[in-house]
């Protein structure tokens, strides 16, 4: 397997509060890795460390080079990042937002080439955004807008894609559509995808590997069958969990009745 990123022994603290402790992971071309874990477990911090937005201890190697030795523009052509709440200007057109993804290829004066526009057109066709190119951002639905932001990342033509809770604000149908798209990008286009998710079952259904963070440490890793177990997930979230096996998928849900009784 083609290893694109290797992180070893990552630790990070905000002031005196440790957030990540000794986390190691690898990302491979064509694979989706889902980061799961409760709020405050360090998922977003880990992604920010891997992008180089935060600096902690440990080592991050991207394509055989330490992260710190990458020039920002070159890194942007290799790694794309979609934050939890991407920024946009209401009056911007979809085509404007997509074109911003090519900023790391522009020369001085923001000069673009035909290749820049060709990349935008390719991504627009891939994500079925052709009919939306002239629409303003504030005229899109939440699902369409999220697709545009994924498009902005893909226009960078990266090898690695980081997404921080990309399903936030999306209904179930759009969540499934987005995860199918990410799976397709990994499996058919060879991207390494790392996404943080709060939906254990959807993450388990679409990711090739899950990594459970609990209190800043790796609590479990492996495929859905290995990680999505009540005795692993339950303690991490502080909930009693029930399991359901259906058509080769394992689903987990909290035992609400027992929980309510325990609270009483």
């Amino acid at each position: 397997m083609n290893e694109l990123l290797s992180a070893s022994n990552l630790s990070f603290a905000y002031s005196q509060t440790p957030v990540l402790k000794d986390v190691s992971l690898k990302l491979f071309a064509g694979k989706v890795l889902a980061l799961i874990g409760p709020n405050g477990s360090g998922k977003s911090t880990l992604i920010k460390l891997l992008c180089g937005h935060l600096h902690g201890s440990g080592q991050i190697i991207i394509k055989d080079r330490p992260l710190r030795s990458w020039r920002k523009r070159m890194l942007a052509r290799t790694v794309a990042y979609l934050p939890q709440s991407p920024t946009y200007i209401d009056s911007d057109l979809v085509s404007d937002v997509l074109r911003l993804g090519r900023a790391c290829y522009w020369s001085a004066f923001g000069l673009e080439s035909e290749q820049d526009l060709a990349a935008v057109a390719r991504v627009s066709a891939l994500l079925e955004l052709d009919d939306l190119l002239d629409r303003r951002m504030d005229a899109l639905s939440g699902g369409q807008r999220q697709r545009v932001f994924v498009g902005r990342c893909l226009v960078q033509e990266p090898s690695i894609l980081f997404l921080d809770e990309p399903n936030t604000y999306l209904d179930l149908k759009h969540q499934v559509d987005l995860l199918k798209l990410l799976q397709k990008l990994a499996h058919e286009h060879g991207l390494a995808v790392l996404l943080a998710s709060h939906d254990l079952n959807l993450a388990g259904a679409f990711a090739d590997e899950l990594l459970l963070l609990s209190d800043g440490r790796v609590a479990a890793r492996g495929d859905a069958q290995t990680v999505l177990r009540s005795e692993i997930i339950g303690p991490a979230y502080g909930l009693e969990m029930a399991e359901l096996n259906e058509s080769n998928y394992r689903f987990l849900f909290p035992k609400l009745q027992e929980q309510q009784e325990a609270n009483q």
């Binding site: 523009r73 790694v79 990042y81 790391c104």
Partner: peptide, 9 residues
């Protein structure tokens, strides 16, 4: 945002 600007190089 700052994070987006950085990731766009």
């Amino acid at each position: 945002s700052e994070a987006e600007a950085q990731s766009l190089g």
